[in-house]
Write a protein that binds this DNA or RNA. Structure first.
Lengths: 213, 213
DNA sequence: CACGCTATACTGCACATTACAGTAATGTCA
DNA sequence: TGACATTACTGTAATGTGCAGTATAGCGTG
């Protein structure tokens, strides 16, 4: 049992799903906490059936069949156990940051474009979460009794996206001052920034200072 | 060539490294942008040699050998090309959020513990970056001419960690108000929160309002 | 009502990556 | 000089991804 298995099991505890529905639901709701490939979302419920944590039966619609998965009581017990186990540390992969770190192999334009691409990706997700929240206000939550959880989760996303967008803005202003990408080293601006960070102060917050008098 | 291959190639462009050094350096500098297993960091340079983007030779120290890898001019050309390619979207895996999303399978204590564990993991990384910045001020950057890049990268980390820590605090205060984890649904607090998010306002920023008059 | 297009509903397979165990030499401190 | 950490890897099973492939269903449109 991997964390992905528990994720699928947790979905099955909400209601029975077909394989296809699981892939769609995982795209919708789990994408930002636990992004997994469509392929895996088809394989996991099969594994759960083999292990006795779910059952499956085929439904037919005309000439077509689909697999419906349902959780078993052993599955429910296992889920409860899971909540008591150690949480794995976060894992954050951001290729745009890798490109920043090695930006001296390319032009300022290349770096700028990497930031644009990051901004576009984040912006898309950001917009999706905002729209989702609007739909919740209209009673559009598929499991209304679970709204309190979804909304705290969404709060995380929004805070994260806003932080990243602020950082992109800040970074763009910084690199706008650069003549080239290479060998600038510890410039006065960089030194000021390093000092702030070494004192665990937020360089972005201070820009838009709360008390700017 | 995967992104991980380019990451190793970019390290090799800084200076020659042994396999072991690459695993250490990747732990140190790449961990927060592109976390990869030790095993992969041993395999990648071998692949680069096969493809002609690096060369290798064995160095002996007593009864012991180690593989030293060096970038070739074909490797440098390839790196330049990479800076012009499309950046992959970010991928963020946070098991603690998955546990929040399905917190109704466990107790408030279970959820609380998941938050504690997330906080501990983030706090550790946060501390490491702050210390790293202090060391940069003391001239401790291994490639001083690249400080301008490392510090913008570190700015990202610090902003991210602070945002997550703020969210954890906020979420703890929210769940402290809950009698149970299940079926609370759209409480008045949740509704207020949803409304803020649907208008793309930060619920955390408003708490510590800049102009609290 | 045939045609194309999109959505539904998957499976197979190569390859990327991780987890874990195992091996062995070297350095270091008591 | 013995124990333990660090250096310096390799092998292998299991996990997960990307992509191609297959086939049916539903819907609009000329």
């Amino acid at each position: 049992m991997t964390t992905s298995s528990y994720a699928v099991l947790a979905l099955l505890d909400l209601r029975p799903w077909t394989g296809y529905e699981l892939t769609q639901q995982a795209q919708r709701s789990l994408r930002y906490a636990w992004p997994k490939s469509e392929r895996l979302l088809y394989s996991e419920p099969k594994k759960l059936v083999e292990l006795g944590y779910a059952t499956t039966h085929k439904e037919t619609a005309g000439n077509r069949t689909r697999n419906v998965y349902e959780i078993t009581s052993a599955g429910r017990r296992l889920l409860e156990e899971w909540t008591r186990s150690r949480t794995q540390p976060p894992r954050i992969e951001i290729e745009a940051l890798l490109r920043l770190l090695f930006a001296d192999h390319g032009s300022i334009d290349d770096l700028s474009r990497a930031l644009d691409e990051l901004e576009a990706d984040i912006g898309e997700r950001h917009g999706a979460v905002v729209e989702l929240m609007a739909s919740y206000l209209d009673g559009g939550h598929p499991f209304p009794e679970r709204t309190h959880l979804s909304v705290l989760f969404a709060t995380f996303q929004i805070e994260m996206f806003k932080a990243i967008e602020r950082w992109i803005e800040f970074t763009r202003r910084e690199i706008d001052e650069w003549p080239v990408t290479r060998d600038l080293g510890m410039t006065p601006r960089t030194e000021a920034l390093t000092l702030l960070l070494a004192n665990d102060r937020s360089p972005l917050a201070s820009e838009r200072g709360p008390r700017s008098n």
